[in-house]
Design a protein around this nucleic acid. Sequence first.
DNA 1: GATGAATGAGTGTTCATTCAT
DNA 2: CATGAATGAACACTCATTCAT
Lengths: 190, 190, 190, 190
Amino acid sequence: MRSRDDKKQEALYLATIKLVNEIGFSASSVAKIAREAGVSPATLYIYFKNKEDLLVSTYLEIKEEMGRALLAGFDEGLPVHDLLHRVWCNTFAYVSENLAEFRYTEQFANSPYSELVDKTRVRAHFEPLLRVIQQGIDRKIIKDVDPDILTAFLFHPIMVLANPKHCSSFKPSGENIEIAFRMAWDALRL
Amino acid sequence: MRSRDDKKQEALYLATIKLVNEIGFSASSVAKIAREAGVSPATLYIYFKNKEDLLVSTYLEIKEEMGRALLAGFDEGLPVHDLLHRVWCNTFAYVSENLAEFRYTEQFANSPYSELVDKTRVRAHFEPLLRVIQQGIDRKIIKDVDPDILTAFLFHPIMVLANPKHCSSFKPSGENIEIAFRMAWDALRL
Amino acid sequence: MRSRDDKKQEALYLATIKLVNEIGFSASSVAKIAREAGVSPATLYIYFKNKEDLLVSTYLEIKEEMGRALLAGFDEGLPVHDLLHRVWCNTFAYVSENLAEFRYTEQFANSPYSELVDKTRVRAHFEPLLRVIQQGIDRKIIKDVDPDILTAFLFHPIMVLANPKHCSSFKPSGENIEIAFRMAWDALRL
Amino acid sequence: MRSRDDKKQEALYLATIKLVNEIGFSASSVAKIAREAGVSPATLYIYFKNKEDLLVSTYLEIKEEMGRALLAGFDEGLPVHDLLHRVWCNTFAYVSENLAEFRYTEQFANSPYSELVDKTRVRAHFEPLLRVIQQGIDRKIIKDVDPDILTAFLFHPIMVLANPKHCSSFKPSGENIEIAFRMAWDALRL
DNA sequence: GATGAATGAGTGTTCATTCAT
DNA sequence: CATGAATGAACACTCATTCAT
């Protein structure tokens, strides 16, 4: 028998991301994704149970990779400020280098499919970061407020700024990134 | 294309918003929207050029209404801080009272249709606010940074916090809203 | 608007019967049936909820018509023997003149779809006949046995003999029909 | 095509019968049959030329076995009546103990595949029985009518009565079986 | 001999849109 | 103005069969 080809699975992931970026979530049909990946639509169903499985798997794949990228060089010995700064910069780097992947996750999160993912599993990839934030709170460095609020001021601004689609004038230069981080820190710190 | 029976047009707007919320953007077919609105699919084409026109018009309609709501009681004589605070509270009020409309705009903005809208027209509805921010900068009250950055720390956190879908623990109590505004202000002020 | 066209519904019934006869139940796809009926597959779904509905409706349509045909000239004043003889002859006439319809019902009854029909509704079309048989039992003309047994000797032999597919030598001449009825009567009568 | 591993071949026969009974003829795909039999779809094609061959072979296999069962204890020295009675009882026994196999043959006979089998080969399995019937005719014990008619009153009633699917009230108790045989004999005998 | 991978052709069904009334 | 009927094209998915190992 022919052996299962990881190349094909990878090609399907990439085709999915590419198409969703180019023509959007709902226009990305199984047929188009398969054609883009260079396989038959029937083949897609060897690697994924159905379309939903393909889309969810693609999302989880990206989230895992993204978690690794954001936490690169994450040394928990460093001060909270420095750790957050490191993650902040990592995020900008990841998003600008993997814009398609990032946009896929945004479209996915705003689709009905998003309700199918186990959110705690996704959160797990970012666990060390959440721990450090808690540390910052305990040490009275960061405001002691609801975690959702912290997230809203720490991560969402990056997400917006790093995605050219949402920005008309902002350019992610090193300087701008530092300015924005400074503001996030002003928001969070006690 | 337009006609006198605004009841039907309004019903189509509401049906669109309701369905997109319930079953998502891509599952909201013309036939379902028409049925929900209590008209024939053919009738829809009297009021809107095509599906795209329906979706875009619905979006613009919401954005206009939303602009009005956010700027309610906007007295440019007040200090910058107070004005932003007023808008902040208005936003929370609008989103929590019009969650379906708000979610529609989020789904719309993350779809390929979003590229069809004239963004300057949308921006116009929020013009007074932008003017006040510029004032704040000129008077050295607000940091002199790219407007996109200011937006990222002023509006996006609200959008996130006001939408229960994105929050697991945060509850939009009056106190929480004040805490969050305080953080936004910390980020922006000089 | 265009008005609903009974011609099309009828054409779909006929196409279904024809195709099931020619290529069998499972090979009769919606696309082929629609093409045979001269309409688009999408049109089929205006007249029937889905394929199942089409097949079941076709079956019920035939059964109703068949009930009428078998009971033509059914005068309950006649003796039991004569009434059964009349039905016997009607059945031969119906089946030989409507072989395609008859075969459709046979294929249908042997498909999983058969479990979807309300059997009491079908039985209703043959009610007068069942009543007469009960009369024959009460008057001690017909053996007092389980109704299924009577049916097995009264109807099933006709079904078999009238369907050339099941017969290699039998020809439904008037004489043969009489011979066969004589045997059925011998089986039933006390 | 054939090979030595009769276990697999037998498993495929059984899987085919089981699935056709459970989900019907048309829903029984090669893939499902193979899975049910615990082999790969490709393996199926080692033992059978194609799906048609599998279905026809399964039918013939059953018919052969059935012929053996019906003629068990068939002593041509016995009177015609007793021989037919014996076959009658054998049939009830076989069908009730091998309902799945029996139903398979019914579904098969009502499918287009049935036209692919050499009917004389099937008939051969029942040859002694046909011979005895002819004997009955010659000895003026049985009515001298077309063999198809005899079959219609001898075998088809059993087929119907033995298959619970066709009966709403009839139960194949010993007594009922005798009653039914009595009726068949009444129909046939001179 | 045995298999999982692979696929073109097909499945039933829904789509956005137009037509005739 | 308003509509249900109509449809070609597309949808997600499965089919029987073959291929390479």
